[in-house]
Write a protein that binds this DNA or RNA. Structure first.
Length: 488
RNA sequence: CGGGGUGUAGUUCAGAUGGCUAGAACGCUACGUUCGGGACGUAGAGGUCGCUCGUUCAAGUCGAGUCACCCCGACCA
């Protein structure tokens, strides 16, 4: 198996992510591909991400709920551009029963069990949720309605990549319904802000967020906003979106309410989501040649203690190590002592480095003698010796500083790799070389956008700001500056 | 769907011009010696060579078909 294509720096990466995911070993002759198995260590990272994100989502006044995996074809086909956007990547359920094959070779689909109406495995849940919403909402008193769902979804993409584009993925999708456009617009921006803050504070990632161009919009949205992160190879990764759906879905799903004046009107909606792709963003952004580097907030193991001893000192060192463990655990969550006897010290160092554990505490005879420990921080690989007085709070502070160091590193990288560009030659040259984010004016025409994409593979990622300049492609005057990049 | 490539041990791969009982490294198991940066020794377990048909005295090796997977495009979070 080759893992080319997901490396932050060419090779070395392939083995790092294998601690987190595995290829789905599907049955022989299965045409299912591009699914991934998330291993326990990887899932623990996801759970930490979920926990932090869920708290923030609830902070927006949103409640969790769950809707069906299957969407009747008729629901799905109601919003024209939505169908058009997703039609080519849907898994369809056509039958509900199997039977034994006549030649005894196993089971086959029972043709008599054909569904009256096909079911779509959700590629996103707008349609199935909004059908329900139309029955929940009748009055202004029912609004705003704010629902979030944690779920798996399926998009049958032609080409998959571990983490970045898997056939099935886990995500969170927020859906809100409002009585007017000002309020729903505000919600869209609030969600966007929540995501960019989340990226900063939890994932230690600096990102660009902003409005998407017409061609990059979500299928069925009036406007789409996106959060874009920069990977080490200079490509951009969109890891979150927030959509202003206007009344597009309300009109086809008949989501109407009576306002305070007794007038009936269609509601205004938003939807927004982030997925397991975030984990890909974290891995690809922070990893180095030694393996993963996890931001402490999402690291399942934040501190690993490695006792180092000879037979003669074994008991003393282990006892000291356990004492240190309980001292740190009193203040810090996620402390692990690696006292496996059957692995060598070097192996352990390597293993936890590879897994991105933020702090390693080494405890040996030398440390015992001076009543201290040796610690190594994963972000810089700096080694230092600290005394055991107030070790818990010191480690806690160090975790904070690792978290903020990763963020400032990410900010610096983003700044360094963002270039304001005014000539198309320069634009092309940059994208052939180091890539990164390019800020340039664009007239807004599809011809220019397509031309740029054809020449360079770069697309508009999001609106950068307003000003005055000339379209990088056709040189017509424009007031809008966009962020361009080659996307994943 | 187009272009390219690959199927041999758990994994990564070697097995020119067909030839004896199919190999290596890593991993795995047991025992011993080790342990401040991926330890070492000894002994072991592990394979219908993707599948089918054909050519041949003889097929992992040649031919045809088939299935699966990977990479590069188009499409996308």
């Amino acid at each position: 198996m080759s893992n080319k294509g997901i490396t932050p720096r060419n090779q070395s990466y392939s083995q790092w992510y294998l601690d987190i995911i595995d290829r789905a070993e599907l049955a022989e002759n299965s045409s299912v591909r591009g699914c991934m198995v998330i291993k326990p260590y990887g899932y623990a990272i996801w759970e930490n991400i979920q926990k932090e994100l869920d708290r923030r989502i609830k902070g927006l006044g949103v409640s969790n709920a769950y809707f069906p995996l299957f969407i009747p074809l008729s629901f799905f086909s109601k919003e024209a551009s939505h169908v058009k956007g997703f039609a080519k990547e849907c898994a369809v359920v056509t039958h509900y029963r199997l039977k034994e094959a006549e030649d005894g070779s196993g089971v086959v689909v029972d043709p008599s069990a054909k569904l009256e109406e096909e079911l779509i495995v959700r590629p996103t849940s707008e349609t199935i949720m909004y059908d329900t919403f139309s029955r929940w909402i009748t009055s202004w008193r029912d609004l705003p309605l704010k629902i979030n769902q944690w779920a798996n979804i399926v998009r049958w993409e032609k080409r998959t990549r571990p983490f970045l584009r898997t056939t099935e993925f886990l995500w969170q999708e927020g859906h809100t319904v409002h009585s007017n456009h000002e309020e729903s617009e505000k919600q869209v921006l609030e969600a966007l802000k929540m995501y960019t803050q989340f990226a900063k504070e939890v994932l230690a990632l600096e990102t660009y967020g902003g409005k998407k161009s017409e061609s990059e919009k979500f299928a069925g949205a009036v406007d789409t906003y996106g959060v874009e992160a920069l990977m080490q190879d200079g490509k951009a990764l969109q890891f979150g979106t927030s959509h202003d759906l206007g009344q597009n879905f309300a009109k086809v799903f008949n989501i109407k309410y009576t306002d305070k004046e007794g007038k009936v009107d269609y509601a205004w909606q938003t939807s927004w989501g982030v997925s397991t792709r975030m984990m890909g963003a974290v891995i690809m952004s922070h990893s180095d040649d030694l393996g993963l580097v996890l931001p402490p907030v999402i690291a399942p193991i934040k501190v690993v203690i490695i006792p180092i001893y000879k037979d003669s000192s074994k008991e003393k060192v282990l006892e000291f190590a356990k004492d240190i463990e309980s001292k740190i655990s009193a203040i810090v969550e996620g402390v692990k002592i690696d006292d496996r006897e059957y692995e060598s010290v070097g192996y352990k160092f390597n293993e936890w480095e590879k897994k991105g554990v933020p702090i390693r505490v080494e405890i040996g005879e030398k440390d015992l003698d001076r009543n201290g420990v040796t610690i190594v921080r994963r972000d810089t690989n700096e080694k230092s010796e600290i005394s055991i007085n107030s070790i818990g709070s010191e480690i806690n502070m160090l975790l904070d500083s690792i978290q903020s160091n990763l963020l400032s590193r990410s900010s610096t990288i983003l700044q360094k790799n963002t270039h304001t560009i005014s000539s198309y030659d320069e634009f092309k040259k940059q994208l052939k070389g180091e890539k990164g984010f390019l800020k340039a004016y664009w007239c807004g025409s599809k011809e220019c956008e397509d031309g740029i994409k054809y020449d360079t593979k770069a697309t508009t990622r999001c609106l950068s700001g307003e000003g005055k300049g000339n379209c990088i492609y056709c040189e017509k005057e424009s007031t809008k500056e966009w962020v361009f990049a080659i996307p994943y």
